[in-house]
Design a protein around this nucleic acid. Structure first.
Lengths: 210, 210
DNA sequence: GCCTCAAACTTAATATCATTCAGTTCTTGG
DNA sequence: CCAAGAACTGAATGATATTAAGTTTGAGGC
């Protein structure tokens, strides 16, 4: 047997990415053998080379798919929250954190990839993550229009905001001593604290210092 | 030739860790071949197995050494800054960020290690990083005694503080489009913003909102 | 000083992958 | 029905981690 019949066509590119993400999660490590991916897809390892230059290209594709999924989740929240910028910042951050905590290995692939992959990864200019960031910036800009963060440099605040959440999520993912719920609580508490700080800059309701 | 003469003893454990860290930096990747480490040390790959159970154990040792070096740098700042808690928090953070940006691959090994390594990595309870964190907490506690962060839960603030800096450093390390100076500026600006926020909670000098 | 043994290595040997090569079988345009 | 290329497969290659087996050296007992 060599070339498959038309009935049994597999759409290898899509399935390979899908199975790679699944195996990444299952093994908790980037070192997923190509053979394993191929077997999960239902072909042999060399067949993958017809669709991806090499293993790094497959991992890059999985990474891009990860950014796509993250964007979709954040975008869904964004649409639900029109008119409530602070609500969007909060729930969008929750969605981000949930994605990261539920897909820890994929998240690591997205944000701490081995340089070998050859991704450039400027959060401000890269193809994949640009859209995710732009949602955050839109939320911040909208918040500013509602009177929060008066006069703040949004680019700067955006980076800091993202840094805090990314940092919290990364440290929690890393911490094997915590179970899923504890990681979530810890991350959520960071997001809540961040939101309180932003809320405090707005149309005076709460004082910032206790 | 089999066992080396006494004159040419090598202290393989120490040198292996040292060379591993050097090769990690040089290759920018965890995938340093054991053969390369062995060659740099001046022995053969199997010889390393007399001192480390396997490659992961060697990487763990390099990681621990990394935490040791980071602690030393932060501790030096700590001693210079006795009596100036906010100054320590600022310069200690600078030292942390400088370490991370100057040793990006080692930093990634410390904070985003492949789960294969078998490290547990609770920043709050792990052997290696505990001391680094305790310096931060001491700085925060001391700041509180000087009137800053009144009534704040330090454990909580400590985690948030660390998350922000770790996040900023991680994102900047990742960003290949920035040169070293730009990464440093970006990180420093996050640290400065953080310090301003803490300063604003103290013996009223600056208002927090602009 | 000599002998034995464990220590500390070395050189082969093995296993696991990624990647490349050389076919083999469908499909499709003529 | 035929030719050519597409899409795979199975075997071959090469890099590494790890284990096995063999060799030399240093130290303690005599």
């Amino acid at each position: 047997m060599a070339r498959p019949r038309k009935e049994q066509e597999l759409d290898i590119p899509r399935r390979a990415v899908e199975e790679t993400i699944r195996l990444l999660a299952q093994q908790g490590d980037f070192g997923v053998p190509l053979t394993a991916v191929a077997q999960a897809v239902g072909c042999t390892a060399p067949a993958l080379y017809g669709h991806f230059r090499n293993k790094n290209a497959l991992l890059r594709a999985a990474r891009d798919e990860g950014f796509g999924r993250l964007y979709n989740e954040k975008f869904a929240v964004f649409e639900q929250m029109r008119g409530d910028p602070l609500g969007y910042l909060r729930d969008g951050s929750y969605a981000y954190a949930r994605f990261a905590l539920e897909n820890p290995t994929l998240y690591r692939l997205m944000f701490s990839p081995p340089p070998k992959l050859g991704v450039s990864d400027d959060p401000w200019s890269s193809e994949a993550s640009r859209q995710v960031l732009s949602l955050l910036l839109t939320g911040l800009r909208s918040s500013q229009e509602h009177g929060y963060l008066p006069g703040a440099d949004l680019r700067r605040y955006g980076f800091m905001f993202w840094s805090t959440i990314h940092g919290a999520v990364s440290l929690n993912i890393q911490n094997r001593l915590l179970d899923h719920a504890a990681k979530w609580d810890s991350t959520q508490s960071v997001i809540d604290a961040l939101m309180e700080m932003i809320a405090a800059t707005g149309p005076a309701k709460h004082p910032i210092t206790s």
